[in-house]
Write a protein that binds this DNA or RNA. Sequence first.
DNA 1: GCCGTTTTCGGCCCGACTGTTTTCAGTCG
Length: 624
Amino acid sequence: MDNISLARLLDETASLLEIDGADPFRIRSYRRAAEAVEQQTTQLAPLAAPDADPKLLLAIPGIGKGMAANLRDLVATGSMPLREELLNKYKPTMLDLLRLPGMGPKSVALIWSALQVGDIDALETAAKAGHLNTLPRMGEKFTAKLLKGIEDYRKNSSRFRIDHAHEFAQRISALILEFPGIDQVTPAGSLRRGRETVGDLDLLATGPACEANVVAAAVEHVATLPLIDKLMARGQNKVTFTLRNNLQVDVRLLPRASYGAALQYFSGSKMHNVALRQRAIKRGLTLSEYALLRLEDNVIVAAVSEAEIYNALDLDFIPPELRENAGEIEAAANHTLPELITLADIRGDVHMHTSETDGTATIREMAEAAIRRGLKYIAITDHSKNLAMTNGMDDARALAHAKRVREVSEQLAEEFAAGKGPQWAAYEASLAAKSLRADIIPQYASLASAKPTAPFRIFTGIEVDILAEGQLDLEDETLEQLDIVVASVHSRFDQPIAQMTERILRAIENPYTRILGHPTGRKVLKRDPYAVDLEEVFRRASALGVAVEHNAHPARADLKDTHLKLAKELGCAISVNTDAHATEELDNMPFGITQLRRAWLTKADVLNTAETPEAFLASLRKRP
DNA sequence: GCCGTTTTCGGCCCGACTGTTTTCAGTCG
């Protein structure tokens, strides 16, 4: 049983305990244990085997004697006594009911005991028949809201990918900012923490119009935004609505004086906040979304900025991406937080496509787009022949394409030496400060504004396909001619996925493989997205000096933060690339960086932070 | 059920909104 399954079973048990009306603190223990299990980088099943050292499980914060026994039962039998007992009493479908808006454990328990209703279909029938109205606190409005909730649940119960959520956040923010006196809107919640997907959008607005005595007008503005599909709730300084695509948006309007406390609070995670408040109490303080207060006299200790709140709790500032209660608070207390990688550390993007295969832009266009984003080198890695649907190249075409890549690279170098060309143009544009915006995201500004000191370089490359037997689909003599060989798992595998790991291992044994792309083949292996034994793959890649790629594109990223942590632990080099098929896709790099940050990675862990093309090349696996 | 710079028992985070409550319980984040 893998960690995700173990975590899910513990979390479900917590929900069943809630329905059962159990001790809330016991419930919290199960939730915390579930999170802790999910965050582990190595599989726990072997540690929960009968002959394993019991100390190993107990070393995990949140796992004590009782929970360790539960884990052993889960691994041995697939279930555990408490879970079985609860499932005898209740139905597993009752867990679905908890996901409906307005339905919590108490309501689920009540409806079950009064009406023996325990699944969504039966609940809908009961609601339509008006049976719920006989129960306390469940009147007309409750029923109507519930039926709408059931409809939405059936329509769309999934989360939103981070790049889509980001786009909506920007659009809504722009509309909110139109109101005079609102001068800042910041996304909080899981979007700010950089989770792969977000369940809903939290936006914090502040400015003079958000002061308590005048906020009503601003609330009115937000509550009547044109893109609102359904207004869910509206309070003194809070508006909740959904968009037509069912994305729920929470907007809070808060005075500048408490903005830091609010941002901290609404950024979460919940577990991080709970831990932070416990820490506050130990120091005679109390933390809420309004301020950090001294308990004895309610004097404000900190509220304006997050940094000052963390500071007042004797902690270094904790970047949002780390706020998962996974050891970051201890690290902040001991001043051992890593200096996380940033977008500005990235100097190259060594996996991208052109119109020679399935991209949309030319070599030169991709290079110029990279230059505008402040990069110093890229690699053109178009597809090889086995991917016929991408117009993949055979050996001859691959070599001819590489020749053109070298020509463009040399051309750029000549223009650079002559004081003209895109590098100088980008530099000039950056000096004109504001003009940098338009097609470039703000974070790139600092990159492009550095005076270029050396010519931009385009590496030759290929994204080769790993064949069924694990060999690559082009000749070694061809691969030898190319700087960057990315070996990727594509859709060629109709054979049993149990052999995936072996094939990948064989592919990276090829001495010309320098980067392993799509290491899990997640997109391909829909039946079993993480069937690949990543630990084994990382171990071998590390021994061979092959880098593992983290795809920055949110739809193509198959490594999760726990995988990236594992790769680092095993000494595996990591390269983060956009795999861009169009110039705009280079703007996906920030999403990749966010995932690296969530994995506690630093600049030193990532290959394409190398300052120069030469340094990057030297950091790759050596050729025979 | 976990945990310990108020240690092996007695604690365990905070506030707003909703519906239907005439003073608050349940839900949510």
